[in-house]
């Protein structure tokens, strides 16, 4: 059982308000896609869920308990980049979590124990199709293979919650579709609650059981950072019949909000 709830979460950096009054309840085994324009605070919200940063206001609960103040093993993460350890081979990346557990002092296993740890990740290597690349270093892998490794590494920890920060953003479309299949299969096989930040609405619809959209509800043209974003749409994606209509509504909303943005912010987005 994993239920995540955010209550009145807000975040700001100096005068720059990023999030305001974000409320969200996500149930067990949900796949919650978080969508919005660049700079709308969806990644900030993910970092708060991860405890990589603390919110200025509000609280986040997992199963009714406030979340730990530091990132920990109950929440796995895959970032767009730098998710795997470049100085470790594929198999070494995968046994790292076991090594952290079993060797508190140096985090390193030797001999029989190491062999056993390697055998225990064999099935995961196969699931993500990296058996042949087991002894390669990340820099020898393609972008898609690196992200598969990152997902496998996070899943082996068996986290209650998996957080994905645009994990497929840097991949080409073909690889991305392939990654979607692998991720969906792994998600169905486990009992995790997944949060995924995406800037691709189609991706959100394809993968999520739930789609939340972040945007600003108030706008001050003289002080563009005076108000933060909050959740403006929260859609359950079970009824596929409506999806076309829902998509159109979300796009409409976002394009309206785009036109209100000052020139330089649009330029930022292009980057």
């Amino acid at each position: 059982m994993t239920e995540v709830s955010a209550r009145h979460v807000s975040q700001s950096y100096g005068d720059n308000k990023v999030l305001e009054n974000v409320n969200l309840d996500v149930g067990d085994k949900e796949f919650c896609a978080m969508f919005g324009a660049s700079g709308c605070g969806k990644s900030t919200f993910l970092r708060i869920l991860l405890s990589q940063e603390q919110p200025k206001g509000g609280e986040v609960f997992i199963d009714g308990e406030p979340i730990a103040s530091e990132p920990g093993r109950d929440r796995g993460v895959v970032f767009q980049r730098y998710s795997v350890f470049s100085h470790l081979s594929v198999i070494e990346n995968l046994i790292l979590a076991t090594e952290f557990d079993q060797a508190p002092m140096f985090g390193r296993l030797f001999g029989q124990k190491r062999k056993k740890a390697m055998e225990s990740v064999e099935h995961m290597l196969e699931d993500v199709g990296l058996t042949a690349a087991r002894n390669n270093y990340p820099m020898e892998l393609s972008g898609g293979m690196q992200q598969r490794l990152a997902i496998a590494q996070a899943l082996l920890r068996k986290p209650k919650i998996l957080l994905l920060d645009e994990p497929f953003g840097a991949l080409d479309p073909g690889t991305r579709a392939n990654m979607h299949e692998i991720l969906l299969k792994l998600w169905r096989d486990t009992s995790m609650t997944v949060f995924m930040v995406t800037h691709d609405l189609e991706e959100g619809f394809k993968l999520g059981t739930r789609l939340v959209v972040f945007d600003k509800t108030r706008w001050d043209p003289d002080f563009p950072n005076a108000y933060g974003a909050t959740i403006v749409h929260d859609v359950s994606l079970d009824q596929s019949a409506e999806s076309a209509e829902v998509k159109a509504r979300i796009r409409d909303q976002l394009s309206q909000s785009q036109t209100r943005r000052p020139r330089e912010e649009k330029d930022d987005e292009a980057n």
């Binding site: 993460v77 980049r81 998710s83 350890f85 985090g107 590494q153």
Partner: peptide, 12 residues
């Protein structure tokens, strides 16, 4: 990201 990832994998 690498340090956070290590923490989520259980590193002290």
């Amino acid at each position: 990201e690498q340090i956070v990832k290590a923490q989520t994998l259980g590193a002290n």
